[in-house]
């Protein structure tokens, strides 16, 4: 709740080294992450999110988890780790944490593309909101 009430690292980085956006308005969640990388370390990170309370909170905590980490460490961040850092999320909200981890990875992929680095080792948790579809069918009532 604290990360929803007082989200950290909201905003954009004008001269970001990597920018990643995931989600779509159909799901109701869009996350955009901006990273600044220095010597392989994420020195600054900001986000913008259109989404529910859990989407905002997971975005916020994901930026906290990634800040100061090396690219190699940050790209291993999982949705599970994001949810655990928030002390758990209800099942229907789990896709929000998928998105936060993926938004970070999308920003890292963008960074690697710009540098001509190999990014084939990065695995997205939730491709283009695919988790939204499956979660919808599971929780419609």
């Amino acid at each position: 709740m604290d990360h929803f009430a007082n989200p950290r690292n909201v905003g954009e980085i004008a001269d970001a080294d990597g920018v990643g956006e995931v989600g779509n308005p159909v799901c109701g969640d869009i996350m955009k992450f901006f990273i600044k990388v220095d010597n392989g370390i994420i020195t600054d990170i900001k986000f913008k999110t259109f989404g529910c309370g859990a989407a905002i909170a997971t975005s916020s905590i994901a930026t906290e988890l990634a800040r100061g980490k090396s690219i190699a460490e940050a790209q291993k961040l999982t949705n599970k780790a994001v949810a655990e850092a928030l002390d758990g999320l209800p099942p229907v909200k789990m896709h929000c944490s998928n998105l936060a981890a993926d938004a970070l990875k999308a920003a890292i992929i963008d960074y690697k593309k710009r540098r001509g680095l190999d990014y084939s080792d990065i695995r997205m948790d939730d491709d283009e909101c695919g988790g939204c579809e499956s979660a919808c069918t599971g929780h419609r009532h």
């Binding site: 109701g28 989404g51 309370g53 909200k93 939204c132 979660a135 929780h139 419609r140």
Partner: peptide
């Protein structure tokens, strides 16, 4: 440009009870 649930949670923090047709408040994702 904003999503309803975030609005409802913040309104609640200010003592206001309201509702939304956003997915996150309907229990589904639609």
């Amino acid at each position: 440009y904003i999503e309803g649930e975030g609005m409802l949670l913040r309104l609640d923090m200010d003592g206001i009870s309201a509702s939304s047709g956003s997915a996150c408040t309907s229990g589904s994702l639609d």
